[in-house]
Nucleic acid binder design. Structure first.
Lengths: 227, 227
DNA sequence: AATTTATTTCGACGTTCATCGAAATATATC
DNA sequence: GATATATTTCGATGAACGTCGAAATAAATT
């Protein structure tokens, strides 16, 4: 593949957003990547086909889910080199301009991101309801009771062909939050229980009063988190 | 500049051809780069403006000549990283498919390239009519008599605002040949003297019988060069 | 078997990009 | 001053690209 072909493939924000979402070796599904790129699934399919044909991404099917990952270290390091080596017009840290409500808590496709997503993930690891092993989340062999407390039946979730708990890198916090079936189940159950509500712009999330109580009392979040 | 912007800028063969012609730190003029890219000067101007705006190239004027060079080591190393790190569809060495007559001797804009261009440059360095210093050609302080022998008046050429003897990297030989005012003068004088003639396709060059005599007798090329 | 979810295919539409002929401008040379 | 060379500007043209609605396909779930 020539330099020009490579340039052409990465020369669009949608494809770059997908690549960046996958940096760090995680696998994400087509719909999740469509969300990250801010396009419809049809457009995402078109872009993903190009990335796979260019051998930048690797695709594997798992039931009806199509998972994509970066195709090797050399691709990742090339993207990193471009990101770090090219002259910038504007060196400002884009994170300074994130709306506070998006930074605090928001949906990332169908799971939680932002400070809330990161903090929940961190606490689940701390109480050993999740294991962070070699930069990836895993469920422990013995089911932690917190899932029942929240109303999540892990044995049912385990039956899914969807990845259970891939690590999603938070673009505002630059720390990981849990995605996949477990991440989605946590988010769905919190909506169902009235602990969080989606805001009108469908991205940011408001934590309700009962949600605040639940997060402090049951999950052990610090009260200072809500200041 | 974002990854996508960078990708878009290098995502066309014409701009990549210009960047590649400039790898190694040489400076080439707009018309020379148009030639390398295989486009008209108007098209080249458009592309060069983009490369300069993206801060990949640096432009400086010298009289009516506009010279371009790679804008720093980080740009060069990023391009090299892309060239070496990306997955290739077809690993064949493209040089295998070069027509023999193009490989042997051809014009590169207005100076000689191919085996002939490289060999003439090598011999000029050997007899100290050119100095290869820090990967660049230079004229020696004392004018070498070979130029008068060929019919070239260096004192007149020195008056030109054009670069005298930049190093042009031969894409078939991967060795340098001399470009600029000196390179052009050598080629022009050899045409004028009937030592070489342009072929009908305007790229390859045929060495005439008298040219062969001249190159062996006056410049010291080995007879085996013409086998 | 019916319904739902994930993804792809199809086709239309609008935008972006790269090209060059003609003409103009800037910088020499004669 | 006239002419030549290097380069740019202008405008038109055609190709390439990215989008999504509608519909279809594949793999679940009910």
């Amino acid at each position: 593949m020539s330099i020009a072909d490579f340039g052409r493939v990465i020369g669009h924000e949608s494809r770059v957003a997908m690549l960046q979402a996958l940096m760090g070796g995680v696998a994400l599904s087509a719909s999740e990547l469509a969300w990250h790129a801010g396009v419809t699934n049809q457009t995402a399919t078109s872009h993903l086909n190009e990335l796979v044909n260019a051998k930048l991404l690797y695709r594997r099917k798992c039931g009806r889910f199509h998972y994509y990952e970066i195709n090797g270290d050399s691709v990742a390091s090339t993207i990193e080199k471009i990101a770090s080596g090219i002259p910038v017009k504007d060196g400002r840290d884009f994170r300074r301009n994130v709306k506070p409500e998006l930074k605090k808590a928001r949906f990332c496709y169908d799971h939680l991101a932002g400070e809330l997503g990161v903090e929940i993930s961190r606490i689940l690891v701390q109480i050993e309801a999740l294991v962070l092993y070699q930069d990836s989340f895993h469920l422990p062999e013995t089911e932690h009771p917190i899932y029942r407390t929240v109303g999540i039946d892990l044995s049912e979730i385990r039956k899914s062909r969807r990845l259970l708990c891939p690590r999603c890198v938070d673009w505002t916090e630059r720390l990981p939050h849990v995605a996949g079936a477990v991440g989605a189940a946590i988010a769905a159950k919190m909506v169902e229980s009235g602990f969080i509500v989606r805001s009108r712009n469908e991205r940011s999330v408001k934590i309700t009063r009962s949600g605040r109580f639940f997060l402090i009392d049951k999950l052990g979040l610090s009260a200072s988190f809500f200041v």
